[in-house]
Design a protein around this nucleic acid. Structure first.
Lengths: 353, 353
DNA sequence: TTGTATGCGTTATCAC
DNA sequence: GTGATAACGCATACAA
């Protein structure tokens, strides 16, 4: 398999040296910019010879000798399921590239077995660092051999008990705080939270952020306005219908993800309520289509690219990797789904009480 | 940068051989399953020693010697901009993995300079094959050095003049034919095409497929029903409004991409037309949100994963790579946006003539 | 059946 | 300043 292409043998350092009439030692010195005080003439002869022959160092030989491969690896779960999460890869790759490193990538599909095998395959290849990334923020376990090499976790984290790695996570808490504050600053006081399933990082942190915002603005959270769906439009649709069937409905909805916001949109529309005139809505995740929704959805973006980039940066920073958790802010995407509460809507809701 | 991890020195073959009390030759033979007629006892001693020490071959040394790295590279443009296009990476990576190869990845961001540098960096590392992938189907140019190694183009193609590579592309033509046929089989005869900008592969092929379907079913294409937008909702919105402002409007819309379909949805909704009761709509691309749209959009999926996988498979197949173009079918996603034309709608359109 | 010797291409050591 | 020479870890031709 994988037979060869135009296999012209590659030029070796020895050939360059020979053409330049120096030893390969000198050639190596020159081509690696080891300022060992080599006269310019010699230098020029070597570089000229290298250029003429189109010499490029054999990375395998160099790696064997130097014990450095200038490669790192990124191990992910389920790349494909999350649109735009691929930007994590991009961020990591671009940072690595800008530091003369290349990136290997393996998607484990969530299989611990594959993860382990992948780490071993990478270590065999003498990679210099390891990046683990999850497409949805979640807890993971590190394959044991990973400890042989600096490791950074991107959008995932270890069991706090054995938290022994550098972690980079989106600041969902601050993000939902921001989103909620958008509503509060617009004048809303009865704000519902449509969350997803219980237990995940996003669920916990976004809920916290929601409550943070209320508290900071001196608003009492109303537990009856905090609901749990399934992160999907249909769940949010149901919840929205319920919320507005009850007395004193909210004037604004914090949907913990965009998909839920779409469900809420549908529900509100079928109730004859206008967005944002009658009800304001914010989402989370900034899915592509949110920009095109009508009205365009105000939401928080996940900093996928930045997570990948920063994770890689931390890996390269090479400080003796004291276990830390770094939070990356989620930028807001302010669009058209938020407005001040309408008199009538709030009056109506008051009347219903 | 990138200082070390727990740098326990790795076990070498020599150490295994020494523990097993054989020469490194024998150890090598055993561990590489070279059935050179080595007695089971010796074999066992070696494998036991290797296991005990946790020996794993140094891939750099092996690559230097064998001249094979068991690595390939994927060079992409703009991974991030297309949701789900990342599946190309996944498909390629999984196929490579299942054949004991690892995948390097570089995103060139469309820069020819980066592409060239990437190819050279990859060749330095003695990769065995090269994959080029574009996130939107398009023509690309291959950096010259790429010819040193087998190369496959995924979702992109060369200038036909110098078509000298293996190409794997989505069969947009057959796909749009299928989509259009869905409408025709439902009974529609006045079908409009809302296409994107002029000139791209998708534009050309989807248009062809649309016409193919009409012809095959004995329908005369009506040029006034073939419109060009901008692949975006707003363009499709305008076009839809125009189409339905004219006499004898269509009863069904073939939108050449899902985003256009969303724009059409909005336009139809604002015209008070119901989907699919009054007007049927099909899209193309199967964006995530199409599943959640109301009604759920019938559309064609791009076979990203399969493109990546098949591309990699062709690379490995290693046939002397005669330049070929292989088309991968786009699976249909049949949902709720297609229905037979309503009597009133078709009656109305006839009346208007 | 197994071991010795050599080379893969590069870099490091240490003379000159 | 420059050049032999050895060594990185492994695989193989050849010898025994």
């Amino acid at each position: 398999m994988l037979g060869g292409g135009k296999s012209e043998r590659r030029i070796t350092l020895a050939e360059v040296a020979s053409l330049a009439q120096v030893s390969s030692t000198t050639a190596s010195l020159v081509l690696n910019n080891r300022e060992a005080g080599i006269p310019a003439v010699t230098k020029d002869r070597v570089t000229a010879a290298a250029a003429e022959l189109g010499y490029r160092a054999n990375a395998s030989a160099r790696a064997l000798r130097r014990r450095r491969t200038e490669s790192i690896a990124l191990i992910t779960d389920a790349i494909a399921t999350t649109p735009y999460a691929g930007e994590i890869i991009l961020g990591a790759q671009e940072y690595a590239w800008s530091h003369e490193h290349l990136l290997y990538i393996v998607d484990s599909n969530g299989s611990a077995e594959v993860e382990l095998a992948a780490v071993e395959a990478m270590l065999d290849r003498q990679i210099e660092g390891l990046l683990f990334a999850a497409m949805h923020t979640r807890r993971i376990a590190l394959p044991a051999p990973a400890s042989a090499v600096p490791t950074v976790l991107i959008n995932c984290f270890l069991d706090p008990d054995e938290a022994t790695a550098v972690e980079v996570l989106p600041n969902d808490r601050a993000g939902e705080d921001t989103a909620t504050s958008l509503l509060i600053n617009a004048g809303h006081t009865r704000i519902a939270l449509i969350n997803g399933d219980t237990g995940t990082y996003a669920w916990i942190e976004r809920r916290r952020g929601f409550l943070d915002a209320l508290h900071r603005h001196g608003l009492q959270p109303d537990e009856t306005l905090i609901r749990e769906g399934n992160w999907l439009p249909d769940g949010a649709y149901q919840l929205t219908m319920q919320l507005f069937a009850e007395p004193d409905p909210p004037t604004a909805l914090v949907c913990a993800n965009d998909r839920s916001a779409y469900g809420a949109y549908d529900a509100l529309r079928s109730l004859g309520l206008r967005i944002p005139k009658d009800v304001s809505v914010v989402g989370y995740d900034d899915q592509e289509i949110s920009r095109f929704a009508r009205p365009a959805l105000t939401t928080m973006a996940l900093p996928h690219y930045e997570l990948g980039r920063r994770g890689c940066e931390l890996l390269f920073s090479g400080q003796r990797m004291s276990p830390t958790r770094e939070l990356i802010d989620c930028p807001s995407r302010i669009r058209d789904s938020v407005a001040p509460p309408s008199i009538t809507a709030s009056a109506a809701s008051t009347r219903n009480t």
